[in-house]
Structures are given as structure tokens and as C-alpha cells.
Write a protein that binds this DNA or RNA. Structure first.
Length: 591
RNA sequence: GGUUGCGUAGCUUAAUUGAAUAAAGCAUCUGACUACGGAUCAGAAGACUCGGGGUUUGAAUCCCUGCGCGACCA
């Protein structure tokens, strides 16, 4: 049972009976009534006055009077064009009682029977993960969990970019150094070791360019002619030709990187159901080119290159196959879209990728539409903004990246300082304390990144950004820990019967919990974990207000009130825990 | 050059299918613990929602234009 839906139905009836107006129940928008007015939900009647042929006040009043015939409504008042509706306490209590017993309270069936593939993370194998990847991973993971909670069948996929010139650069620099360094010999994480050589390559390369330019070459020419670049390209050709030594080294170094990524992924708490490797998929899509030519969707230029004209979609002409027959990025993506469809028969395929690829995905979808692929419409780019630093963009070559592993370690240490100072750690052993530091530190980081609308660029100030007070992950965890503590002290079992006379904060909290369903559905529809993050903050805030105004475990509380508030605390705790779970955040019992 | 995203208190964000006095956190200032957990709560102060036009009974939100920051395509 949903109070808002019921209210919408009553209003639909009211419009029909009073004004002979046929409206869709779901089109009737209800908002929570503002604090300073009496009521629970508000209908803005301005949009309907043309058809009701009455003044806003009269329209609202007539609707309100009609509504009074329903048990759900206890009263109403009209302020200008706003109809403020007060629900009857019995109905609110009924909803709450049902919610405490409803096993499916935290689910919706919106996505029932639908397959979704969520592709996220998709790293290059030449350097370690940084802050931007963290945002990507958290978004992808959380969106997946939110979809699952809405009944979708979700497959998390990771397309690893394990081939190409970038990995050759690291391989080359490693060979040239001749130190035979390994993660074991250096004690470095594999991805960091390979990243070190990537940087080393770049340093050498830049020096070579300088020398060549000093010798009279143009910069552009020097970038092409630098010996290390030529060597890297040579290595890529060897790789593509299947040269045994090159492949062997490639396998070893990629193995190091995977081992390193695995550690970072585990610590981040993200996981995948399916890995795709570009080394397996980069030749896919070439057959599509033939298909497109046959269907006359693509066209060939005199030099043999293949193109598609997307100008009718507001896009450009796009190259699909170079004149030398090699494929470009988008050609591969056409192939992997098909591959994923073959593997999982998806209705929706999400790509969690930064907004610099907005154009790329429009093109991809445009091409698939023209090819009349059945899955074309299901492709969606979950775009998100870059993470900036106060000094500007993160640039790995300039050493201004925030390394993912370093950052997680830093968060852990910060949490530790605070926990040792004011945490409730009595009875915990050192391992338990360490685990707690990890849970709290990661919650601060994750909540900070997820509470912002993904579309927005995110400014990250390492010195001051991440806090443990106010609108933060630890605040929400703290509220949950407080609930656990109160429940222990109260020692009463939950019981919602025999309680009447709801106090303001109780009513507010119940109606906020009531909203969970709507938020969960909206978060899935918008692919936006920030909906959940902002919602759970609202819940925590309301609980804390309730906590200060409505005693639960204190001595002089009447038994019915205590049992009722215990029930309310339990449902709030479950809601907080579930929201945090959707965000990939743990909810410790004590902290 | 073309396309596109963003611009909200000092800072970080909310409200963007148009609605009442633009909502929070941080920072600043006041109050509240012999405790149901002060990582909390209550309160003060802080915003011509980048500028200029327009549509509307009503605009942070929609349209046009200028400025600023970014991305992509060529």
C-alpha cells in the first residue's frame, strides 16, 4: 500500500466528479507540504484552473471538500493555489505497521524480466587506478546494485583495454632498463610497477623530442621520429603479428597489472561478473563493416576507407575502417555491443564512461540504429564529469594524479585518528579496529563521490574535501550505530499497536521512510546513486531530530510509546543499512 | 569554426518533468551532555541562483543572447 498512490487515485476521482476532468492518476503531482504550513502533501492547483473554470482558491477548496469523504484524509487547508492535505493518523500508522512486516519493502518490480549489462571500470593496463577511476567504479557498482533492487537481472562487465601502443610503451621501457624488476623483487604492486615504466618511457620520449628539435626538426616531426616511439610502434606490430617473445612479455606484465587491480577492486568493494579483453575483441566489428556496405548504410571512399554519414542525426561523417584496412575504436565497440548481446541478450546496455565520450556514444548508437540492430535502442551512456583538483585537471604525465591506492590508505589513516580519539572501540581487538577504520574511511570517500550528481564535474581538494562530520558517510553510519545502541538499551520488542498521538518528528520520519520506494525507482530510472545518497542523509537527519525529541529507552516512557519507537528505530536502521549497501558502504554496529 | 555539458551563500552540494519565504553541510558566532552515543542537536548570520532579454498567473528550472569554465568533432 502506498499513501501517495492512494491519494492520487482519490484526487483523480475528485477531478472527475467535481469538474468532469479525466486525468491519469500518476500525472497528478504531489509534493511534501513545506514546514511552515499545516498538512502532509500539497497539490498545486494552478495547472488545472483553466479546465475547472474556477479560481485557484475555489478549485482547491472544492477538491478538498470532496476528498474529506475518504478515510485517508483527515483535513485540508487552502493557501492561494495550494491545496494542503492532511492525512489521517490511522492511515499513516497502518502504512507503518505494514511496512515493518513487509518483506519486499526494499524492492520494486520495475525491472522484472529485464536483462541489463553494466559496463564499468574498463581500465588501461599501463598504469594504476586514480581518483577518476574511483568515481567510475563506485558509480558502476552502485548503479548495478540499484538496478538489482528494482528487479533487473544485472551483469557487471569490465572491458579491459589490454592492448595497444600504451602497454607497449611500458614494456619497452621495462626491457630497456634491463633490471628485470618484478613486483616480488621490488615489493611494488604490479600496476604501480608497470605504471612506473610508463612514466619512464614518457620521460625518455620527451628528452628525445627535445634533442631532435634542437637539431632542427619540427616538433610534430620529432614526435613521430623519436626512436622510442618508433620502437614502441615496432613492438605493437610484433604483437599483432603474434611474435612469441613480445606476447610472452605482454602476458607477464599484464598479469602484474591484473594482480594489482584485483587488490584495488577488492578494497573498493566492487566486483564483476564478466571480463572482456580488448586483445580478444579488437578484431570484432570488421565483419559488420561488410554488412554495412552491403546494406548501403556505409560507403567507401576511393582510397578504400569506409565511412558512415550521420549528418541526418545531427552528427558528422565518421570513419569506420582506415584505408589500410585497420579498424578504429568505434568499429571495435560495434563488435563488442554485438558480443555482449550474444552473451546476455540484454534489454539495456549501460556504459559507465566519462563525459568526454558523449559524442562517441551518440555515434555508436546512431550506427547501430542504421544497421537496424534490435539492441540499438537499449544502449545508454551513463556519463559522468571529470574529477578536478584545485590545481586543475589530473594529468598523469605531470604527476598531478591522485592515486587510488594512496587515497584509500589516507582515508583509512584519517579514520583511524578519529576513531582512536572518540570511537567506541572497547571490547574490540586490533583487527576489528582496523576493519572499522577501513569501513569508516571508505564511507567518507564513497559518500563524498556519490552524493554529487554524476553529470557534474567534481572538485576534489585533498587537504580539506573529505570530512567526517555533517553531510558525510560517517554521519550516516553514526546514526545507524546510535540506533543499534538505543535498541540494545531499550530492551523492548517492536510493537506498533496501541499507539496514537504521533508527534511531529515521528510523523515526518514515517512519511520520509514511506518515500523509499519512489526514490529507489527514480534512482534506477535516472541511473543516479546521488538520489539514494541524498535520501539517506535526509533519513538520518530526521532520525536524529526524532531521537532528541522523542525519548525511547528513558525510564519514564510509556510501554506502548517505547515499543512503537523501537519499531520505528528498527525500520529506520534497516533503511539506512540498505541505502548504504546500495552505495557500497558498510554500516558498522559500533564506531 | 561546429556540437555539447556546466555556472546556485566564502567553500562543497540540494532543489532542474516550472510553483509558496531557494534547502543543507563545511567554515564563523550562540546555546544544549552527572548522556537513550556530542562523529549529535537547537539557533544566528550568510544568495539580485554569472550578466541581459523573453515566454508564463508563476522561472534557479523553459527559449534567445552575451560572458566564464570544460569536453568532444574537424
Amino acid at each position: 500500500m502506498n499513501l501517495i498512490h492512494t491519494l492520487q487515485k482519490h484526487l483523480q476521482q475528485a477531478f472527475q466528479e467535481v469538474f468532469q476532468l479525466e486525468l491519469e492518476a500518476s500525472s497528478i503531482k504531489l509534493e511534501r507540504t513545506l514546514q511552515d504550513f499545516l498538512g502532509d502533501y500539497t497539490l498545486v492547483v494552478f495547472p488545472y484552473v483553466k479546465q475547472s473554470r474556477k479560481s485557484p482558491e475555489q478549485t482547491a477548496t472544492l477538491l478538498g471538500e470532496y476528498l474529506l469523504s475518504h478515510q485517508l484524509i483527515a483535513g485540508f487547508n487552502v493557501v492561494k493555489g495550494f491545496l494542503n492535505i492532511e492525512l489521517s493518523e490511522n492511515e499513516i500508522l497502518d502504512f507503518f505497521t505494514n511496512a515493518t512486516q513487509d518483506a519486499s519493502f526494499f524492492k520494486t518490480t520495475i525491472g522484472h524480466g529485464k536483462n541489463v549489462v553494466v559496463e564499468y571500470s574498463s581500465p588501461n593496463t599501463n598504469k594504476p587506478l586514480h581518483l577518476g577511476h574511483i568515481r567510475n567504479n563506485l558509480l558502476g557498482y552502485s548503479v548495478s546494485e540499484i538496478l538489482k533492487a528494482n528487479g533487473y537481472h544485472v551483469t557487471k562487465a569490465n572491458l579491459i583495454n589490454d592492448r595497444g601502443i600504451h602497454i607497449c610503451k611500458s614494456m619497452l621501457a621495462w626491457q630497456q632498463a634491463g633490471l628485470n624488476e618484478t613486483p616480488e623483487s621490488t615489493g611494488m604492486k604490479g600496476d604501480h610497477l608497470v605504471g612506473k615504466y610508463y612514466v619512464a618511457f614518457d620521460k625518455t620520449y620527451k628528452a628525445e623530442i627535445e634533442t631532435l628539435v634542437a637539431g632542427g626538426m619540427t616538433k610534430e616531426e620529432a614526435e613521430k621520429q623519436a626512436p622510442s616511439m618508433l620502437a614502441a610502434q615496432q613492438m605493437l606490430r610484433q604483437w599483432e603479428a603474434g611474435d612469441a617473445d613480445t606476447i610472452a612479455l605482454w602476458k607477464i606484465m599484464n598479469g602484474w597489472v591484473y594482480a594489482g587491480f584485483d587488490v584495488s577492486y577488492k578494497r573498493l568493494g566492487v566486483d564483476f561478473d564478466k571480463f572482456y579483453y580488448e586483445s580478444d575483441t579488437y578484431l570484432l566489428g570488421k565483419s559488420t563493416v561488410k554488412e554495412g556496405l552491403d546494406k548501403k548504410v556505409f560507403y567507401q571512399k576511393e582510397d578504400g576507407s569506409v565511412w558512415i554519414d550521420l549528418t541526418d542525426e545531427g552528427l558528422d561523417n565518421k570513419l569506420l575502417l582506415r584505408s589500410d584496412g585497420t579498424s578504429v575504436y568505434i568499429t571495435q565497440d560495434i563488435g563488442t555491443a554485438q558480443l555482449k548481446y550474444d552473451d546476455f541478450n540484454y534489454d539495456i546496455s549501460l556504459y559507465v564512461v566519462g563525459n568526454e565520450q558523449d559524442y562517441h556514444f551518440k555515434v555508436l548508437q546512431g550506427i547501430l540504429k542504421k544497421l537496424e540492430k534490435p539492441y540499438a535502442a537499449g544502449i545508454k551512456h551513463v556519463s559522468y564529469g571529470m574529477v578536478d583538483l584545485p590545481s586543475g585537471k589530473m594529468k598523469s604525465r605531470e604527476g598531478t594524479v591522485v592515486d587510488a591506492d594512496d587515497l584509500m590508505e589516507e582515508m583509512h589513516d584519517e579514520a583511524r585518528k578519529i576513531i582512536l580519539e572518540r570511537g567506541k572501540t572497547d571490547g574490540m581487538n586490533e583487527q576489528q579496529i582496523e576493519d572499522l577504520c577501513e569501513e569508516v574511511g571508505m564511507s567518507a570517500l564513497k559518500y563524498y563521490l556519490l552524493r554529487v550528481d554524476p553529470l557534474k564535474r567534481l572538485l576534489f581538494n585533498p587537504a580539506e574535501s573529505i570530512d567526517f562530520e555533517g553531510n558525510t558517510g560517517p554521519y550516516i553510519q553514526y546514526t545507524n550505530a546510535r540506533i543499534n545502541s538505543v535498541l540494545e538499551k531499550a530492551g523492548a520488542s517492536a510493537n506498533t499497536s496501541n499507539y496514537t498521538g504521533l508527534l511531529g518528528p515521528e510523523r515526518e520520519l514515517i512519511l520520509a521512510l514511506h518515500n523509499y520506494h519512489i526514490i529507489l525507482g527514480k534512482a534506477a530510472e535516472m541511473h543516479n546513486p546521488a538520489e539514494i545518497a541524498n535520501y539517506v542523509y535526509d533519513i538520518a537527519k530526521r532520525y536524529n531530530r526524532f531521537y532528541y525529541e522523542c525519548p525511547i529507552a528513558k525510564e519514564d516512557v510509556a510501554p506502548e510509546a517505547r515499543s512503537f519507537r523501537v519499531a520505528l528505530s528498527i525500520l529506520t536502521g534497516k533503511t539506512i543499512t540498505e541505502c548504504l549497501r546500495l552505495l557500497g558502504i558498510k554500516a558498522p554496529r559500533k564506531m
